[in-house]
Design a protein around this nucleic acid. Structure first.
Lengths: 229, 229
DNA sequence: ATCATTGACTTGTAGGATGATTGGTTTCCC
DNA sequence: GGGAAACCAATCATCCTACAAGTCAATGAT
């Protein structure tokens, strides 16, 4: 047996896990204020120092944000999204797009094979919201629904590593999109072909549709870049 | 060690910075035992709780390792992929492989188009080291050269986002491989086809070779999994 | 209405007390 | 002498109280 792989979870580590659970599960939303240290200590049945050490660890990891005299807030929903956001901010759109292509095309392919009925429903619901926001020209709702669609596709792969990686990525993406000003011309990009291919379980069609989608975005990107010149 | 009592940042953050400084500067080497909490508190002129919170933050980040009743040791000299490593530790090999496939196939395709002469040299050098380690049956050197090869391919894309993402990923991968015991049967997997396709600038050949490589690994994985049953 | 004051609440820091765990030392028995 | 058990000191783990410092909103005087 290997040396100390399974060491007894310390109290602080348990608290860290529970706090992370609250964040990732959505019980504590982004920018929400979490209970005070005293309350948390009571609820979790541990001392305030234990809570503090856990909160400090998550603060250093970028998930929480403590303000003396005010409270503690959720800064990010995952540990990587903070670092990722920093990274993406200085990156070129084309570079980001190439990574998206890598992840999303593979995701579409896998999703076509593994999707459940529930996955299909989620994907189509997001697609519907996306189109509705498109005809109503609601930028925020459109971006949100667009990201929700892609996340739903990735979740249909049931690959936890891929899902978490992509969620971090898309969270950073949202910031990037919002900062750059969302180009609503992307509305006509054929997302429905992806959804259909996944629903029908056709992996190669899903791959082709994913590639086509990314190709459209690449073209839209270069178009807007030319417009800005 | 010098101790300052500036007040601009919080005390804990200052202590975190000073501890990190000791680690990255090399004053505390890898696997070295660091002073006890009490001593650190005295040296830094802060309370023991402050030291504890700082140590806890670095422990959670993967830089330190606390052992009750023994002491605290330096576990790593950089926190680049602490979160990623934690995540991959609980993941299935197949899940990780699917993400690798997504990133590496796209990387091979892009590298075929963008590689410079220098990239080709690095790739082939890594390939050479890999084969040499294979015939000499040196496990550590083989794993190192194998990862170096893939990193070199990714770097040939000249996509900074992809490069950093993959580097974090592969660093975590190394730990995972080392923990699982490297299956040296993977030696026969055709990496040279990827290298040739990239050198000749044939993107679709590179894509096919990348897929083939991942396919081989997948088969090797399921084989070893069956052997373990 | 405006603005300074106050007070409640919250996080930041300090330090002590006690328990749990580890590693080394000593002792004791054979 | 050798080995095992008991012991002890060092260290981290947790909890506690106390106070400092910061924020925010209600209060009340102007």
């Amino acid at each position: 047996m290997s040396l100390r792989t399974a060491q007894r979870a310390s109290l602080v580590d348990q608290v860290i896990e529970q706090l992370k659970e609250q964040i990732t599960s959505g019980s504590w939303r982004l920018h929400a204020k979490i209970p005070t240290e005293t309350v948390l200590a009571e609820q979790l049945g541990v001392g305030r120092n234990t809570v503090r050490e856990a909160v400090r660890a998550l603060t250093h990891a970028g998930l929480l944000d403590c303000r003396q005299g005010d409270g503690t807030y959720v800064r990010a929903t995952s540990e990587l999204s903070g670092a990722m956001a920093r990274r993406l901010r200085t990156a070129e759109h084309l570079e980001i797009l190439e990574v998206r292509r890598a992840l999303e095309v593979e995701a579409a392919k896998l999703a076509a094979v593994r999707r459940t009925e529930g996955d299909i429903e989620l994907i189509e619901a997001a697609l519907l919201r996306r189109e509705q926001a498109w005809v109503e020209a609601e930028v925020d709702a459109f971006v949100e629904a667009d990201l929700a669609f892609h996340v739903a596709v990735v979740e249909a792969t049931h690959n936890r590593v891929l899902i978490e990686l992509y969620k971090d990525f898309s969270a950073a993406l949202r910031a990037s999109i919002a900062a750059a000003g969302a180009p609503l011309e992307n509305g006509h990009i054929p997302h429905d072909a992806i959804a259909r291919a996944i629903a029908s379980g056709d992996a190669s069609a899903a791959e082709r549709a994913g590639h086509a989608c990314m190709e459209h975005i690449a073209i839209a990107l270069t178009d807007t870049a030319e417009l800005l010149d």
